[in-house]
Simulated assay, not measured.
Amino acid sequence: MSILFLADLAAEELAVWTQALRASLPGDDIVAWTGEPASAPAAEILAGVSVAVVANPPPGRLARLPALRLVQSAWAGVDALLADPALPAVPLARLVDPLLAADMAEAVLGHVLALHRQMPAYRAQQARGHWQPLAQPRMAERRVGVLGMGEMGQASAALLAQVGFDVVGWSRRPRAPLPGVAMASGADGLDHVLGAGQILINLLPLTPQTQGLLGAGAFARMPRGAGLVNAGRGGHVVVPDLIAALDAGQIGHAVLDVFTVEPLPAGDPLWQRADITITPHVAAPTDPHSAARAIAANIARWRAGEAPLGLVDRSTGY
C-alpha cells in the first residue's frame, strides 16, 4: 500500500524523514512529495493513497487525494493544518511521541529551575558588577502553573512535582488525577491557576479559543513579578501586552521558545530585552526516527479498527 509523505521540508530533512518512515513501515511504499506541482506523483498513485503523513503540507494538496481516509501529522501541533480550508473531512491525528513529551518536560524543568533560582536577576546584577544575595524560597514554596494537560503538559507537570515544586495543572475539561499535581479546569480553574502560579508554563495547543490567551487580562491576574514560559505557540502571547507587563514589573521575566514569525527577525526588539529569554523553538524538537515509530504504530492501530492516538476534535482543534 502507498503512504504519501507530504512534507514541505528541505531536501536533506525530507530524505531523513522518508528513510525513517520506510524503516518503520517496511510493508508500505512511502511516496515523498514536497507539494510542488511539477514534482507531483503520478495521478494513479495519488488516487490510491488512503493514508497521508504530513509535515507542513502546502494548502490544498490533501484535497487531491480522493481515497484519503487518515491524515497523520508528523508534528504535535496541528493548527497550521486546520487552517487549510480544503482539508478533507477525514480523521486527523497529531503526533503522540513519548520521547517528545520527555524532551519538553526536561526543557520546562530547566527553565523553571532558572527562574526559581533567580538566574535572570543574578545575570542583571552581573552586568552591573553588583554582588547581592537574594532571598531564596524552597521549591515546595514555589507554585508552578501548567496550562495544557496533554501528553507534554502532563509529563512536564509530573516532573516538576517529582523534584519538589507545588504544581497545579489546567485543562479545558476535567482530567484524570495526576500524582502530586493539583488539577483545575474550566474558566474558574483558569482564573485560579493564573492567580496562584508564581511561574506559569504554557503548553496549550493554538486554537481560536486559546489565540491571544496570554494578554493583558491574564497578566493582570498573575502574581506580581511572576515568571512566564511559553513553549506552546507564538499566537498565545499578545506581545505588546507582554512588553507592557514586563515594563510595569507585573511579569518579572519571560522565556519565549515560540513566535508567530519564525525565525524571529534579527531586528525584532524582543532580542534586546534583558527580561526576556529567547530560544529558537527548541524546547521539544521532533526526532524523525522516534516520530516515525510512533506514526507507524498509530497507522497500525487505525488499520486494526482502533481509534488513532492523538485524534483531533476539529470543533476545538485538539
Rank of each mutant, 00 (worst) to 15 (best):
260 T>Y: 02
194 L>A: 04
26 P>S: 01
215 G>Y: 05
254 A>P: 00
211 Q>H: 15
118 Q>N: 10
288 P>W: 02
53 V>E: 10
246 L>P: 00
307 A>R: 14
81 L>Q: 12
317 G>D: 12
229 V>C: 09
296 A>C: 10
204 L>Y: 02
270 L>M: 00
259 F>R: 07
286 T>A: 03
62 L>T: 12
78 V>K: 07
156 S>F: 00
78 V>E: 01
162 Q>M: 14
77 G>E: 09
296 A>P: 03
141 E>M: 06
297 A>H: 09
302 W>N: 05
17 W>R: 02
199 I>G: 07
218 A>W: 05
46 L>F: 04
155 A>T: 13
280 P>F: 12
130 H>V: 08
136 Q>T: 01
139 M>D: 02
198 Q>D: 06
67 A>G: 09
167 V>T: 00
177 P>E: 13
251 I>A: 06
62 L>F: 03
9 L>A: 04
116 H>Q: 09
3 I>A: 04
157 A>C: 01
203 L>M: 10
77 G>S: 11
34 T>E: 04
33 W>V: 06
234 G>P: 09
77 G>P: 10
242 L>K: 08
182 A>D: 14
103 D>W: 08
297 A>L: 10
7 A>K: 09
190 L>F: 03
98 P>C: 02
219 F>M: 11
20 A>D: 06
38 A>I: 11
235 G>V: 01
224 R>M: 08
74 A>I: 04
11 A>S: 12
301 R>L: 12
173 R>F: 12
10 A>K: 14
227 G>T: 06
140 A>R: 15
24 S>H: 09
52 A>Q: 09
120 P>F: 02
214 L>A: 04
228 L>R: 02
122 Y>I: 10
27 G>M: 04
250 Q>V: 15
250 Q>F: 08
72 Q>F: 03
77 G>D: 10
248 A>V: 09
245 A>G: 04
300 A>R: 15
106 E>N: 11
114 A>D: 14
139 M>N: 05
105 A>Y: 00
40 A>N: 05
